[in-house]
Structures are given as C-alpha cells and as structure tokens.
Design a protein around this nucleic acid. Structure first.
Lengths: 342, 342
DNA sequence: ATATATTATGCCACCGGTGGCAATGTCAAT
DNA sequence: ATTGACATTGCCACCGGTGGCATAATATAT
C-alpha cells in the first residue's frame, strides 16, 4: 500500500490527464466526462491519494478546519460535543480545532476572531454560554464567518442555530413534580441573563401557573449554576420555616449542591425532599441518590451543528441549511424524587 | 487597526526589504541584521501581520497543528487536558486538533496515522489508555512523527513521556488507610493490562506488604474501571462473611460504584466503611459523601506535554526535551474515609 | 456541410510562504 | 591595495493545489 507523498501531479500522470482535471474530480465538479472521472477515481483509490489540505487551502482559501468555541462551566459535556461533531465532519473531510475561552472577557470578540484568522477556519461552532452572546454573532456575520450556535430556546433565524427546547423540558418537570403530589415546590434558577436559564425558568413557572400553582416568591431563587451555589441556596430554602418538599434546579451541578445541603441538614432524599436537575450529565447518574433530571440530547445537537455548519460553508444544498434543528430534552426519572405523602 | 489580508509581500515592501528577509525575521533566523530585524518587526507589529499557516506549511511541510488522541473512559478530564495544552501551545503559534478514538480497535494505528496524514500534524499527544499502546508508539517512531505520551509510571525514555507517579499516590493511600486503623482493607484494581492500573495496584499492595499487612486474596479484585464494575465488585466485597472496612478503588468511577453498593446494602460511609478512589475528577468532590482520593495533576501534565512536544518538533533546545517530566499525585482527604473504631 | 452551442480538458499564473544559492557588503589579515 | 572569511540580503524556483480562460471535442441547429 504505497502512500508516500503522492501528489496531484502523480495522479494526473498516472491517469493520463491534466492535474486540473484531477482537481475537478476531487472537487466533484460536474464538468468532467464520466469515463475520465471513473478512471481518475480508480487511480486515486489505488494509490490511496489524499489531497493536501494546506495546498488546497492556500489555493482556495479554505482550510477544512472547523473551530469549537466553548467556555464550559460544565466540562462534562464537551467530550460528547466533540465526538458528535467529529462523527459528522470527519466524514466530510474536516477536522476540529478546539478553543476554550472566557466568555465574559471583554476581548472575547477579538479573541475569537483572532482564533479564526490564525488558522483560517472555515467556520465555527459556538457552545453556550458563548453562543448566547449576540454581539459576537454580529461580529462574525460582519466578517462573513460561517457559524452555528447551540442554544436553548427558539429563534427565527433557524439557519444559524441548533436549538434545544428547554422550555418543554422544564414544563415536563413541573408536571412531573405535581403528579407526585408536591404542594410546596421551589426552583433555583440559573443566572437569568443566560438564555438557557431563562427558558427553563419560564417553562417551569408558566406551567406551574397554568396548573394554578404559582410559585411563591420565597420559593424562587436565582443561583449561579455552580455547585457551591446549589449548596448555599439549598441551605437557605431548606431552613425556611415552611420549607419546600421539592426543589427543581436549573442544572445538575446545583442539584448536587442541594443534595449536599440536604445531607448536611439531615434531610432525607427522596423521603423528605425531592430534588431534580437539568442536563443529565455524568454526575446525575453517579450521585447518590441518582438525580431525576431532564436529559439534553447533546450528541444529536452536535451532529446537527456539524451538519449545518458544513452545509453553510459549502453553500450548496440550501435545504439542509434551512431546516429547523430543534431537539427535545426529556425527563429521566431516577432516585432523587418521590411521592409526597404529607 | 487594518488587518485584511496583509501578506509577507506587503510587509517586505513596507519595510523595504525582500520577502526572504521578512521570512527570516518571522522565523527568528539569526542571520538578520539587528537593524533590519527591528525595522521589520515594527512593521509587522504595526500592521498586525500574522503569517499564513497554510502557506507556511505548504512551503516547509509544517502545519502548526498538534493532535490530541484520546479514548477516554473518563470524559471528565479532557477539558482539563485541552486547556492545559492550549495554554502553552497557543503561545507558540500552534493549534490543537482533537481526535477521539477507540483504542481497542484493530485499526487504531492506521486510524491515527491517517489522522496525522490528513492534517499533516506536526506532532501528537497521546492520552491513556491509547498512550500505553507501545505498538502505536513504534509505528509513530517509524513514521518519524513527534509525539508525547501521558502515562502512569516511569520510563527510561523520558523524552517521549510525561509521567505521573501513581505508584507513590497509591502508596500514600495505603499508609493513610492504615493510619486510620483499618485492619481489613480491600482493593478493586483496574484492568491490570493498563499501565496505570498496574502501577496503582503495585504501589498499594507493596506498601501494605511493607507494613506487614498483605492483602488476602479475597480482598483483591480486578474491576473494569467503570461505574457498574464498582457496583458489582463492591457488592461482592461487602457481602463477604468477613467484609472489609475500607476499599481502595483504582479510580473515582469505581469508587462511586462502591458507594452506590454500600448505599444499597445500607452500609454507612464513612462510619462503617471507608471508600477511596483515584484521579480526583469532578465526581469525587460532588458525590456524597465526597470522595477521599488521589489527585492526578492533569493540568500540569498537559502543559508539560505541550512543552515537550513543541520542543521535539522544533528540535532546538535539547535541554527542554531531555528533562524528566514527572508529576506527583497527592492525597485529597474528604468525607468518604474515617477512623476505624472496631 | 457549416455555423453554433455545449461540454470536456488543458495551460498557466497564482495563493503566501520557505529552501538553496548567489550576490553584496564589511572587516581583518596579508 | 588585495584577498578571504563572514555576515547580510536578495533572487528564483518550488510546495500542491485551484481559478480563469483558451482550446479541443462533440452535439445541435441551419
């Protein structure tokens, strides 16, 4: 299996055509005779030829590199994202370059632009919360950089987004807790300037309201999405005179914190308290009691994102770009929630 | 701040020298007059010029891309690795391309080689367990691909490895458990064909032996490193007639499983049973009771790896390459271990 | 048969750098 | 003044592809 440095020139010579024609075959240009095409493809196959990305990039100002921009408070899912994205894009001949960042940094925009410029990325995928920064998206639009944003909630501009309907998920959780006969239900939200937090919050309280169970103000607290915040806010809620029997947290991290707070206070879960989260990250299934939560289908979102981004980059197949990519989180019932028998 | 498509030609023209000289300045060639160098650097700075990676790569067969090859049963730490690697390599003008793989796959070697070839990577970083496959390393040697392996244990070939002295860590744990007066100590090892598992296993039992506390055979079990295995082996150990009062697990995943098993059996941790793990991944601090474990300094290892790899690639500064990169895991005491007062 | 599209292919410059070598300049030694 | 050694700099080909246009081959119309 010879594979040392075969170039387009070799293929051209071996198949008796010009390199330009080989180039056309590689790029699936329609203007190549069927015969020629087959002949060249055979030689390419036979010599296991792979066109040089750098040369291709230099000539066509494409790099065949995609960027993944993330600032993940929740490190648990980026592996999932990476695998999902790669499962699609490596088939298409793209590689994935990662770029952790600090989304709160004032020079986020420049930082990301510089990243793109340095490697001449063909496009990027933005993960939350960086994906929620509209200003960054504007800058990218302005520079004509193709991108896809993974976000919670809904947007009209469906061709820039892969969306997760967190509102539905939170609504499901509300109904579930009510079905368990809980009367005193609290929620610890995430920072409400995050889109995902807002969606979950609204989905939850609106559904509660629609069931005539509005949350009292004292049962509604804004947390930071971090474990420590879960402990703190959990402790607060659980030491109220009239403490809730169920607490819904904006994510699994905080739910773990609440579990910790309950444990410290000697409150038994799920007997005396139901706790639930959102995301279904690894933690949720490992912690004791295992968390009832809402599973965000990360892998499918990542695949969609890759699909969409490449479609945008390659500009053909407008159908693929337009299609609405929305995934639906679903309730996962484990051991941290139970029937309220007060 | 002009930044559109400035090329080496522009810089050459603007600074009144030939592009070859600019190229020399970029590459820090010593054969440039001090004056010229300063002049050119000033212009480069002023126009915010960044050389084109693809063109550079095409001409010099370098890509300025590093690969990260991993097959992570423990997804929790790859974010740490990525950040660590990038913190060093982006300063040096390299980007990081990720490549999850299945290390057990029969075509691992070809898969990785193909990855390298497709993107003309300058070098790769191998994470365990893929890093433990000597055959893969041989293939890479053979193809002259620079690489660095993150492994547990010690190797003479220090210039290919960044090492974690897991043996020491396990020994520390053995001493710690004995200091808590435990008499009946068990261990659930990882698959012993993994280097890391073997190191931890040996470090632990040798230390126990050296304290005249050899582990009875029934207290020594090989697990798979997975959560489920922790549950299964934990259940087994805890239902022995003479059950252990402390269980050391090869990793935090399995320790979580043991915690689960104990919980299911109504055994209180740490009152009736001490459980400890290895790694100190996110799980360890979140689970209740929080796990006593051995912290593997992932971030520093990743930085070392990037450092070493780039030194190898650039071939200069042989000092940097030779230096021995060994990190030392350390004991983190949390709530899952306690004094044995039988 | 001839003019006219239409399709298929080839030629050559060019993308933005680097390698090798020649050319130029400087300075000490003869 | 001449020569040689060494430090600087420039010239040009080349890396492996693609773009644009010219050309050749084939099909269609007149």
């Amino acid at each position: 299996m010879p594979n040392e440095k075969i170039t387009i020139n070799d293929i051209a010579r071996l198949s008796g055509v010009s390199k330009r024609t080989v180039s056309r075959v590689i790029n699936q240009s329609p203007k190549v005779g069927e015969q020629t095409k087959l002949k060249v493809e055979k030689i390419i196959e036979q010599y296991n030829y792979v066109p040089d990305k750098q040369a291709r990039g230099l000539a066509s100002s494409r790099s065949y590199l995609l960027g993944l921009v993330y600032d993940n408070p929740d490190a648990l899912y980026i592996d999932d994202v990476q695998r999902g994205v790669l499962s699609f894009c490596s088939k298409k001949g793209y590689e994935l370059v990662v770029h952790p960042c600090r989304y709160k940094s004032p020079d986020l925009n420049d930082n990301v632009l510089d990243f793109i410029r340095r490697s001449k990325l063909d496009g990027i995928i933005l993960l939350p919360p960086a994906s929620e920064v509209d200003e960054l998206a504007d800058v990218l639009d302005n520079k004509q950089v193709p991108y896809v944003r993974l976000v919670s909630g809904f947007s009209e501009k469906t061709d820039d987004f892969v969306m997760s309907n967190d509102r539905h998920g939170a609504a499901d959780m509300a109904r579930f807790l009510v079905s368990l006969k809980h009367q005193k239900i609290a929620m610890i939200t995430g920072p409400l300037h995050y889109r995902s937090s807002k969606e979950r919050y609204e989905g939850f309280i609106h559904t509660m309201e629609s069931m005539d169970r509005p949350l009292p103000e004292s049962y509604l607290i804004e947390g930071t999405n971090l474990y420590e915040s879960g402990i703190e806010k959990g402790k607060h809620l659980l030491t109220l005179e009239d403490r809730p029997t169920a607490i819904f947290c904006n994510n699994d991290e905080m739910a773990s914190g609440v579990l910790k707070a309950a444990s410290d206070l000697g409150i038994k879960v799920p007997e005396q308290l139901s706790v639930c989260g959102f995301d279904d990250n690894l933690l949720a299934s490992r912690i004791i009691p295992a968390l009832t939560t809402i599973k965000r289908p990360v892998r499918p979102m990542a695949v969609y994102a890759a699909n969409k981004l490449i479609a945008k980059i390659e500009g053909n197949n407008p159908q693929a770009v337009i299609q609405n990519c929305t995934v639906h989180p679903e309730l996962v019932i484990r051991d941290s929630t139970g029937f309220n028998d007060n």
